[in-house]
Design a binder for these strands. Structure first.
Length: 293
DNA sequence: AAAGTCACCAACCGCGAGGTT
DNA sequence: AAACCTCGCGGTTGGTGACTT
């Protein structure tokens, strides 16, 4: 039954990696590619656990990693995403948070972002009087906590908890007309996460007027969505919030210039309309309501 | 200059989901 | 079907350098 353990812990090194170990790991992965972490240490001549090799590669040795300080834009992006994705209790994203945020920050790892959050952003938000966990004013969060209200997952920009009973929680999303759902349901695709490019997972929707659609579209960050077409020959840059799909945000600075949302199934031009963050484009996710028993 | 404190971040740990035998 | 493994995740720890007293 089963397989043998991934490594014999008694015979593995721990702690900081040496230059030689790094070189061996890089050379091996360059020659054989990623994966098979279990057998990699032995094959590469490393006295390390496969798990440790994977971590070292992903967090430090990968050639596409961006080293150095976070820019202000990255700061704000992390805060917005953290606010949007909430904590691990976020019901539809499960335990994912840092990895999703990392997916929107090319060259950054979840571990790096997590560390940065804990050391910089957390303090920054506290200095602004904002609770890092709930993204609400500290006083408000304290009050909510004392009333026994669980902290909002922070997805206020896109998700609103509208009703709670002792046994059922109903969470409503931006409404979409049911008739449109039915017409469009066979062509809609949704994006929830953006791991490295090249992977595409698309599942066709078959249900009519579903309460919750969890289809996934995994795609590279879409640069085109930073702009929208204003004329057949011209494009206008979107504000930071719209790039994140937070066009309803109070901070949105291009509100007045923005056209009405176009049905995402209107054809190939849809992508030029932008506003598609994690598939939370209004009208894309047909989460009219979801009940959690 | 030495001691204490703080900040950073690489690495470890434990867990859950999903796959394999 | 059950046992066991791999992978990938978030939380946490510990080493180290910078800064302050």
């Amino acid at each position: 039954m089963g397989r043998s353990p991934c490594c014999e812990k008694a015979h593995t090194n721990k702690g900081a990696w040496t230059k030689e170990e790094d070189d061996r790991l890089v050379a091996y992965i360059k020659a054989h590619g990623e994966g098979c972490w279990r057998s990699l240490p032995k094959a590469a001549g490393l006295l390390r656990c496969g798990k440790s090799c994977r971590l070292r590669w992903i967090n430090y040795l990968r050639p596409d990693l961006k080293r150095g300080n976070f820019s202000d834009d990255e700061d704000e992006l992390i805060i917005k995403l953290h606010s949007l994705l909430g904590n691990k209790t976020n019901f539809f994203l499960g335990g994912f948070r840092w990895s999703l945020i990392a997916g929107r920050l090319p060259g950054r790892t979840d571990n790096e972002i997590k560390n940065y959050w804990n050391t910089h952003i957390r303090r920054k938000l506290l200095n602004r009087g904002i609770d890092p966990a709930t993204h609400r004013p500290l006083s408000e969060s304290a009050q909510a906590g004392s009333e026994g209200t669980p902290p909002a997952a922070g997805a206020s920009a896109a998700v609103a908890t509208t009703a709670t009973t002792s046994s059922t929680t109903t969470i409503s999303f931006a409404a979409a007309a049911c008739s449109r759902d039915q017409e469009d349901s066979k062509t809609d695709v949704k994006s929830l996460a953006t791991p490295p490019p090249t992977v595409a997972v698309v599942k066709k929707e078959v249900e009519k007027c579903p309460d919750l659609n969890l289809e996934l579209r995994i795609s590279p960050p879409y640069q085109e969505q930073f702009y929208r077409e204003t004329t057949p020959s011209g494009k206008e840059e979107l504000c930071f919030d719209c790039r994140l799909g937070l066009e309803s945000s109070r901070d949105c600075s291009c509100r007045g210039r923005r056209p009405l949302m176009v049905s995402i199934s209107s054809g190939p031009k849809e992508s030029a309309a932008g506003f598609d963050f994690l598939g939370l484009k209004s009208g894309v996710l047909d989460y009219r309501s979801l009940e959690m028993k």
